[in-house]
């Protein structure tokens, strides 16, 4: 009896490690597996964005993957900038001088754009959102959250 117990312990440990490995793999699958969502056909987008202290208008924009996007940045009070996360895309506009630039939206997800020219106290928080294609990460986050709840509940049961 006494001799067996280290073996059982070892087995239990092995079981636990297998479970953790499976769980981690499952997490990776949820986070990274490609979802078969058809891309909408790419189009030309002309987006006029007005920048004022401390607001972009529109501040939430949705486009499709592959779209050829032209941004017209119009400043309405002081000099503002437009810098898009994840893309090397930056504009700077004085009031009265619209600044334009284009890029191809080849990365999907939600990207923040922010003012890149200091424009007052709240400048660091002057932010807008550009959603390119579906926001898969949000859905992955939700599924991962459900998994977290289930695993949490199971983790207690197995202990008893």
């Amino acid at each position: 009896m006494m001799r067996q117990s280290p073996n059982i312990l070892k087995q239990n440990k092995l079981k636990q490690w297998t479970r953790i490995t499976i769980l981690l793999l499952l997490c990776l699958v949820i986070l990274f597996v490609p979802f078969p969502i058809p891309d909408a056909p790419p189009t030309d987008r002309h987006i006029r964005i007005e920048a004022s202290m401390f607001q972009f208008t529109p501040s939430e924009i949705k486009i499709n993957k592959g779209d050829h996007v032209t941004v017209d940045l119009v400043s309405t009070d002081v000099v503002h900038g437009f810098s898009l996360d994840g893309y090397n895309f930056e504009l700077k506009a004085d009031p009265g001088q619209t600044s334009s630039g284009s890029f191809i939206a080849n990365r999907t997800g939600v990207f923040r754009f922010r003012c890149s020219v200091a424009c007052g106290n709240l400048h660091p928080f002057m932010i807008g959102k550009l959603q390119i294609g579906p926001n898969l990460l949000l859905f992955r986050g939700i599924i991962l959250g459900f998994l977290a709840i289930i695993v949490a509940l199971l983790s207690i049961k197995t202990k008893k």
């Binding site: 997490c27 986070l31 990460l137 992955r140 998994l147 977290a148 709840i149 695993v151 949490a152």
Partner: peptide
């Protein structure tokens, strides 16, 4: 995303 899932796991 991972952090928030972890938080939910822990809280649950």
């Amino acid at each position: 995303v991972i952090l928030l899932s972890l938080g939910l796991f822990w809280a649950s």
